[in-house]
Design a protein around this nucleic acid. Structure first.
Lengths: 231, 231
DNA sequence: TAGTGTATCTCGACT
DNA sequence: AGTCGAGGTACACTA
């Protein structure tokens, strides 16, 4: 990895064209050829960038460019498209290279997939005596997160979100419309389950006859940990 | 802006929890308190980060931490939430600071707000002999992207998206419900037009009696270029 | 200021 | 390889 702080202007040509006027910026050149152009603000998104795989070529400036202060021209070309990033280097203030090696990578916890697994394992949370039919039950308009059967034998469709918003209720409504056309499943009732459910979503769900279930992720994980420890 | 290359491990706690084991990485500390943790690969997204506004606090390691090689503990706290990034610094290999000033900012060009204009000009694409009634036809629940009349004289409401998803079909359905109550327009049929239409959206559209039209933006732009060249 | 739609989205999982 | 769904999405625009 090479890290450069330089006065530069940048032009991107690809899906769109974009231009950055001359200013002092941080340039990151990664081993895979990708390049990031960062300013001292904004969030993690660079002002401009080239995705890997890419190749960097450096060239001398034309006389015209040299006359306006360009010291070097860096051209970054994507390997799989004709996207191009052109960096006109005026002055380099810092330039260092380090070998970082391969990163061992990020481990995540607490995403929707975890929630789905936990709820499938602890399906009693949607009602004592419930049994799992299957996760990701397929339909023409997409998979239903969890399909279950309650103690009375009725089918239950569960839509799962980390944050329960109106969108999720709409989604579940569409599934219910579809599932209720299937005589082997009908009648199907819906449960909208999330770690947090917004008031508007609760109102809409109530209006549609959909039950809401607020999930306590930490508690569910604790149960999971205890279950795992038995083995 | 401060740029550091260091051996470190990183933990994030917020919307989710994430952990990065000890490795050599690039740390970027921006003036607004935001922090990026980059490896020598991937795209522009950092392995881990803290969004601005945030505050960095540095502390001495506990004895326990010091025994496993931690030289310093950096805690980055978001100002507006309780998200926290904890960086355990083992060894710093590079550490430099530069004042970059305020960036003049990015100018973009050639983005596709033109899609609607292009389809309005090439309204025959929705059916030979069609004529434009108007773009952004106002209704009580918002403007319909394009309202047209087909060769047979029937009204056509067109909902336009770059990527056609179920949401767009729902939106068009609401417009059609409303427009069909207007005796001067009814019967109104719908066309869902997008550069890409997802299979689920197609299913739902078919179910609602809405036609789908996949648009070739490049071809439409070519036609537009040729038209422009005539003048 | 909150809501909405796009993005050079990125990223992973699955077909 | 393409497709689809989710994101600590970010970001611009609008009401």
């Amino acid at each position: 990895m090479r890290v450069v702080i330089a006065d530069c202007s940048v032009d991107y040509r690809g899906r769109l064209t974009a231009h950055l006027p001359l200013a002092r910026r941080l340039l990151i050149l990664k081993a895979d050829g990708s390049v990031l152009v960062h300013s001292d603000g904004g969030s993690y998104k660079p002002l401009n960038w080239m995705s890997p795989p890419a190749r960097l070529a450096t060239a001398e400036p034309t006389q015209e460019q040299a006359e306006v202060g360009v010291a070097s021209v860096w051209t970054v070309s994507a390997a799989k498209s004709d996207d191009q990033l052109r960096i006109l280097i005026h002055e380099i203030h810092e330039d260092l290279s380090h070998d970082l090696g391969v990163d061992p990578g990020l481990t995540k916890d607490g995403v929707e997939a975890d929630l789905q697994r936990l709820l499938a394992e602890q399906i009693d949370l949607v009602g004592a005596g419930s049994t799992l039919i299957r996760r990701e039950y397929p339909t023409a308009i997409g998979p239903v997160d969890i399909l279950a059967r309650d103690a009375a034998g009725a089918t239950v469709a569960i839509e799962l979100k980390r944050r329960g918003d109106i969108d999720g209720v709409e989604q579940l409504t569409r599934y219910l419309d579809l599932l209720n056309r299937d005589p082997r499943l009908a009648p199907v009732r819906g449960i909208f389950a999330a770690q947090q459910i917004k008031p508007q979503a609760k109102v809409l769900a109530a209006d549609r006859g959909i039950a809401c279930l607020t999930l306590d992720y930490d508690a569910m994980r604790d149960v999971d940990d205890k279950d795992s420890r038995l083995f």
